[in-house]
């Protein structure tokens, strides 16, 4: 990340492409594979993450002057857990069928490295509004990644999108199996690296 301050639009773009959580930073991978066997689940989790990420960034940023750096980790955790509980209870009430399938993964958002990392790296040092933009960008980046992965997996694995059949014929069953998730992410990551190297002269995702 460059040191010069970025405009808010740049912050959002950075979250969506430059530091895309899944394809570039390779963190918060767990749900990216678990819930992407259908567009509906992928989008639902993506939207929850946008909400949690933005709200956490705003809250941490607003409280940044009062948080003692020594105990910041438990405080960040509590703030994140609070918002995750809100979205968890909301989903349980208003989106019952989806919640039954991805409920565990909604609760797991609490252990997301990406949310914690943004709170630590960005929100605890920046103004409220730019933190909001950063959170929004990061969240949307995650949502985009979920949409791309689940698009391919549902189309190839079930021949459908959002549960509506699109193509007939025998689908590639492996894509909706657990193994297919790993394969899809691996291939897509490789593909994005290739684009980056070929057209932008980048070095590709460094990864872990």
């Amino acid at each position: 990340m460059s040191l010069k301050p970025k405009t808010n639009i740049e912050l959002i773009k950075n979250g969506m492409f430059g530091e895309n959580t899944i394809f570039r930073m390779a963190i918060s991978l767990c749900p990216s594979i678990a819930v992407t066997n259908g567009m509906k689940n992928g989008v639902a989790l993506g939207i929850s993450v946008v909400f949690v990420q933005t709200m956490v960034n705003v809250t941490i940023s607003a409280m940044r002057k009062f948080i003692n750096p020594k105990i910041r980790i438990p405080i960040f955790m509590l703030v994140i857990a609070g918002y995750v509980t809100i979205i968890d209870l909301l989903m349980a009430t208003y989106a019952r069928p989806i919640y039954k399938e991805i409920g565990l993964y909604i609760q797991i958002i609490v252990a997301f490295a990406s949310i914690f990392a943004r709170a630590e790296v960005f929100a605890s040092k920046n103004k409220v509004f730019s933190s909001m933009c950063d959170g929004l960008g990061m969240g949307i980046g995650f949502l985009l990644a979920m949409v791309v992965i689940s698009f391919f997996r549902e189309l190839l694995g079930k021949g459908a999108l959002f549960g509506y059949p699109i193509v007939s014929g025998s689908p590639l069953l492996i894509m909706i199996l657990p193994a297919g998730g790993f394969l899809a992410v691996g291939l897509l990551m490789g593909f994005f690296n290739w684009i980056d190297m070929r057209f932008f002269g980048g070095k590709g995702a460094s990864g872990v």
Binding site: A26, G186, M189, G190, G204
Partner: peptide
């Protein structure tokens, strides 16, 4: 090369 590291 594009697959080195994480993708593979």
């Amino acid at each position: 090369r594009p697959f080195r590291g994480l993708p593979i």
